[in-house]
Design a protein around this nucleic acid. Sequence first.
DNA 1: AATGAATGAGCCTTCATTCAT
DNA 2: AATGAATGAAGGCTCATTCAT
Lengths: 190, 190, 190, 190
Amino acid sequence: MSGAGERPLRADAARNRARLLDVATEVFTTRGVGVPTEEIARAAGVGVGTLFRHFPTKEALLEAVMVRRLEAIAARTALLSAEPDPAEAFFACFRLVIEQSAGKNEFAQALAAAGVDAHAALQEPSQVIRAQLARLLDGAQRAGAVRNELGLPELIALLAGTGAAMEQLGADPAARERILDVVLDGLRPR
Amino acid sequence: MSGAGERPLRADAARNRARLLDVATEVFTTRGVGVPTEEIARAAGVGVGTLFRHFPTKEALLEAVMVRRLEAIAARTALLSAEPDPAEAFFACFRLVIEQSAGKNEFAQALAAAGVDAHAALQEPSQVIRAQLARLLDGAQRAGAVRNELGLPELIALLAGTGAAMEQLGADPAARERILDVVLDGLRPR
Amino acid sequence: MSGAGERPLRADAARNRARLLDVATEVFTTRGVGVPTEEIARAAGVGVGTLFRHFPTKEALLEAVMVRRLEAIAARTALLSAEPDPAEAFFACFRLVIEQSAGKNEFAQALAAAGVDAHAALQEPSQVIRAQLARLLDGAQRAGAVRNELGLPELIALLAGTGAAMEQLGADPAARERILDVVLDGLRPR
Amino acid sequence: MSGAGERPLRADAARNRARLLDVATEVFTTRGVGVPTEEIARAAGVGVGTLFRHFPTKEALLEAVMVRRLEAIAARTALLSAEPDPAEAFFACFRLVIEQSAGKNEFAQALAAAGVDAHAALQEPSQVIRAQLARLLDGAQRAGAVRNELGLPELIALLAGTGAAMEQLGADPAARERILDVVLDGLRPR
DNA sequence: AATGAATGAGCCTTCATTCAT
DNA sequence: AATGAATGAAGGCTCATTCAT
């Protein structure tokens, strides 16, 4: 549902915008949000002016990056609605969200921000995700696969935390899997 | 082991140094490391010049803050050596580290940094902690209280991650406890 | 004497040029010359490119605006040549020039600039005005209606100054009239 | 009545502040407010940082310049209270204000701004001036030296306008005097 | 001819760090 | 030792102007 107010955008402009988003995503997640706008522009092969034409503020750029990530997650979690087994669906979703944010420190912050938040633009996609998570959690709990005392806030916090934990083990997939097992097992009723 | 090169430090100088560390700890953890040095100095009731006399660099100040926190943790975990029950000792230590870092986002980073690191000054205290964690982990595993396949890196990552998760639930102690339960239960052998 | 080098200009191009001049006049006089070119173009319903096709420089646009205003004044003052009573003609002209520039701060500057100047394009129309003012002043002085010691520079300065004064009283026509009376009376021989 | 909240200011700091104000006054009035802050700092022999330490904003610097000018005028006009002859006092004041602003285009704007205004800091000094002008005007009118129908707004507008007019004749003191005569004579009752 | 995206020099402002007092 | 004024390199952002479409 990409709104009404947007005009088609010329081919090259769209390409530049996309490049900027890609570069910014990469740079922000690997080196933090302190990277100068000028460097991002250069890495995207455009001038600063172009960056600021597309994103009126550095913060707006960051927001756009986060929105895109949240939307990607929302799209993926939506696919899990098809899964018939609620427990299966829930755990697949947990993995998916973690993996999406794997290796991206900033994203943990984005998700965290989604918990409280202030930026209007993030509200919509994060609400979508929250709604889906809530549904999946409920299903899994009804199926007896997840502790009943856990609520949505705890789930979100665990997602962010597990993501953060896995980032530290970046180079070692087996260790990451072990961590994920710990958390997933911990979610089950005692 | 406070080295050899340091001279006694006049009483007021020592007081200033301590105040700066306290204020910086508070400020860095609650508002991030972006807070201007001048503001820290003012909050500590000294001039910037004094701050830079004690800590030649902003980074040095941050480092000192982290060292102090790590040393505090090391001191506490050391006390747990006395605990006869290895499982008990391990879980108490886990809680302790988490609680120390609870509410302090930056500290999670400090711990994370302790995993890889670059700053020489952090090496020593973090090595101490690592050694103690390794010993406690080993004891708990021998006692059959913790999964055998987990290594020290996974433990550290889980500590950082759980700390991060609990920060999101700041205002809700019960929810925090539920999260901690999930992880602690997950650590147990299946 | 609209030179030789200009080709006829397509109908729509001429319309755009006129619109740009109108908008620029309005915008420059009400909000100052600091308004971005892009905004002027948008208000005129064209792209920036079009603006710069018609006026190679922002300064050129400002110049064109001023030339048009000067020419309008020159045209009006020319009509006063018909007036048989020299005193009448002079005072009418004074009022006219003031009223033309009333409410347009920038125009006062334009007139001021006409006194010294640098822009070649302004020279011609301002010379025309100056010549007419000189003639009217001379007539009024011969008729004994204006102090003999006043020269053209003083007249121009008074025009600009009175215009500036009246701008401050924008909302109060009666007060403006009172000011004008002061100056007009002051012009008379003691 | 320079408030209570200001601390004494070190000797060199005071010197720098004064130099900055002097330079800014000169530069703003001769070349407009568009001059880069960096240039002002350089001309004052300090770094930009120093400029911004003393004046947190370019606008604050401009404001300080204007306040100082207004206060200087207020101080001078206050001296005229001693003058026994009301007509004499009024005309002296008129001259004085004009001469203070002579050659300083921006100042006309400051006075104009004093008419409407928004900046709190300018309010006080401009109110003082207005009050004094009002008193002098009233005295002169009672003495029959100035037209009764003129109010304070008209007086202020005439001051600004006359100042503007005289700026155009900068190099020619005799011509300036002639203009002033015109206005002063015009102020008298017909 | 018109369009509007792209460009990049330049501006205001911040802040870690130095140094005169 | 302490102070806080001074410094200047960066950084975010604007806008006149150019150029591909």
